[in-house]
């Protein structure tokens, strides 16, 4: 059985920036446990000799020329903003520095 704990789910929710309620955390702990149990079987066949595939089509070196293309207008850029101040997006005070 899976070892997923409520603390772990709370930590994941914090990483994912979702303010889950304690009921949500409890429910997700159970569900996540079940899901993880069933998806963990990938490890059975993922032996070291098998290379990983990240893209279905193996392309490399897809580049764009360094040529300026028109940007959005400032009004378009800010058209969906929940809050703005002049031509900038406005966000509540930031607690953590990066």
């Amino acid at each position: 059985m899976s070892e997923i704990t409520a603390e772990q789910v709370a930590h994941l929710a914090n990483l994912a920036r979702i303010d889950l309620s304690s009921e949500e955390i409890a429910r997700l702990t159970t569900e996540l446990g079940q899901i993880v149990d069933s998806v963990a079987k990938v490890a059975e066949v993922a032996t070291p000799d098998v290379p990983a595939t990240s893209h279905p089509m193996p392309l490399t070196n897809v580049f764009r020329a360094d040529t300026v293309v028109p940007s959005l207008t400032v009004e378009q850029a800010l058209s969906g903003a929940p809050d703005r101040d002049g031509d900038k997006f406005r966000v509540p005070a930031i607690l953590d520095e990066e």
């Binding site: 764009r64 040529t67 300026v68 293309v69 940007s71 959005l72 400032v74």
Partner: peptide
């Protein structure tokens, strides 16, 4: 460079906030 890393917006400053933005870099 003339443009940003992942989009064709100009890599330059000084014309006012959010003038060099597109769906990708926004």
């Amino acid at each position: 460079t003339k443009t940003k890393m992942f989009c064709g917006c100009a890599n330059e400053f000084g014309q006012g906030a959010n003038t060099n933005t597109c769906p990708t870099c926004l």
